[in-house]
Amino acid sequence: MKRRKLWLGLSTAILAAPTPGLPAAIAAEGGLVVAQAHGEHGAKAKAPPAEAKGATASGEGGEGGEGASGAALPPELRLSRGIGLVRGHLLVGNELIEAGRWADALPHFLHPSEEVYGTIRGDLKAFDVPPFDVALKALAQTVKAKNKEAYARARATLDERLAAADRGLKAKEANWDFFTLETALEVLKSAASEYEEALKGDRIVNVVEYQDSRGFVLEAERMIGSVGENLARKDADAAAAVKAALADLKTAWPATLPPKTAVKDVSAVLGDISRIELQLGRLR
């Protein structure tokens, strides 16, 4: 299986491997800016570089990957990222259900409990977040049953659980706007990994991974949008740059079902994400 790890934890300043098509300057700048940003995030946000390298080298994307890659993150970021990944799955899954594609939607409702929840289970109690694994599984059952009414009810229940997780995190996070942006960036990194898994040359050969990555990008967009006004007040130009980069990034996922030919290659996707990462330091 192809595994090329490009992204490290926020505490590391370099890319693990040179990426064709990604300007070295951007890569280096991005790493430097991230390192600065992390330095001001607070002591609890620090993660050992060695662990970060280990984490990024150990599976992301694919089965188990998107969850496992969060191991080196600080607990609050790991939890927030995990919630974001769950929501990303739900977003794209919901798109498929709305299109009547229940069978296609099912993996996106199974992945959160199979791949993501286990990586945040241990963090829930520390943030006073009630467990929600049953709510995840119960929702997946309604998708198996192709029961839209039950799905809507179970979805509402899960959304309330996830909102409780947000509240738990928010209660302990001093700089929520920046933290949200940081989390969105982590979610985008997962999106890039999933996208890479989906691609073979210029063709998208793994639809589920493509859809995973689409869901993550949509969720990151939602997250950034939720704090967009506050970020703009901090630095309007930086906020606008984030918005523009996100808009460019999104073009890689024109629809729930993939295009015949990939709109962007992985390097281009990573480049867009780097443009967002570059602005972090200005939006603290």
């Binding site: 059952q141 309604t142 049953a145 029961n147 009414e149 039950a150 009810r153 179970a154």
Partner: peptide, 14 residues
């Protein structure tokens, strides 16, 4: 009584 939903239907009143 859907088997996937513990032989119920997951809604308040169908």
């Amino acid at each position: 009584h859907q088997p996937e939903l513990s032989f119920s239907d997951g809604v308040a009143r169908r």
